[in-house]
């Protein structure tokens, strides 16, 4: 059980939750995640740790309300307890001085890139952030990102701010126009990470994405999160979650995401 200190719906359907977890706050590194069970009936779901405060002993997660378990999590309020909160899990992001880095975030991934951005800047990189949403009112943490990044480039599907379209469109256009990146990092929905990997492939820019596969234990025990990278089966929970987007077999990843669509609807029945 961990206690929720703050809880806010920061934009429609996306929630920010600060919990008390001094041990995780001491230990976590950028790119690691927690497995969360909001109440004893819910699934175990992986959520990236977006931020933390080792002094206060708090950990911040950003999540998209997308199914039954995330709905339950969204219903919890400050002062409530989360049934199970386990981490930090997964390997941390590999952070080095690469030169110029494009850091792309969409959806919950805008929150996920924050700690990676901080670490990249600490290593002396020039970092251009690409932040994407359907519309201006769905973007968040703009100020937090702008304060640290060398530049933040927005794209919205309706064009209400920044470039009209998706972040991979913007990235592609920038690359075409001659912008050079030494590394591209993308975190967000699976399809967005796939498209970013496609965008950078012709330019042979090393592109790292953070896989958000279905997981159960998160310790390598079950294999639910398996994916094929460079022809080999890997487990996102212990071998990742960060992989080279150009080596991932995306067909398998995209089809495995659809396994439980019917059950997701059935699980909405409250019993």
């Amino acid at each position: 059980m961990v206690k929720i200190i703050e809880k806010e719906q920061i934009v429609p359907n996306i929630h920010c939750c600060v919990v008390e977890s001094p041990e995780i706050a001491q230990k976590v590194l950028p790119g690691q995640f927690v497995i969360v069970i909001p109440d004893e009936y819910c699934e175990r779901i992986p959520i990236t740790i977006s931020d933390w405060d080792a002094v206060k002993g708090t950990v911040t997660i950003i999540f998209l309300e997308v199914g039954t378990t995330t709905q339950r999590l969204a219903e919890l309020k400050a002062g409530d307890e989360i049934y199970s909160f386990t981490g930090p899990l997964g390997k941390p992001f590999e952070i080095d001085n690469y030169g110029t880095v494009a850091l792309v975030g969409g959806c919950y991934g805008i929150g996920s890139i924050y700690s990676v951005l901080r670490a990249l800047k600490e290593k002396g990189n020039k970092v251009v952030v690409y932040s994407e949403a359907r519309s201006k009112f769905l973007l968040y943490w703009n100020k937090k990102l702008e304060e640290i990044a060398d530049e933040v480039r927005y794209s919205t599907v309706d064009g209400s701010i920044g470039t009209k379209g998706h972040s991979h469109d913007r990235l592609e256009a920038d690359l075409k126009a001659g912008t050079m990146y030494n590394r591209v990092i993308g975190i967000g929905c699976t399809y967005m990470m796939y498209l970013i990997s496609q965008a950078t492939r012709p330019y042979r820019i090393k592109t790292i994405v953070s896989m958000n596969t279905v997981m159960i234990d998160g310790t390598g025990m079950c294999g639910a999160c398996r994916l094929v990278v460079d022809g080999k089966t890997k487990f996102a929970c212990v071998d990742g979650p960060h992989f080279d987007g150009h080596l991932i077999d995306w067909d398998i990843v995209l089809s495995r995401r659809k396994i439980y669509l019917e059950e997701e609807i059935l699980s909405q029945e409250r019993q």
Partner: peptide, 8 residues
């Protein structure tokens, strides 16, 4: 015990 328990 699905859907009482939410894991399918």
């Amino acid at each position: 015990l699905f859907p009482k328990y939410k894991t399918p």
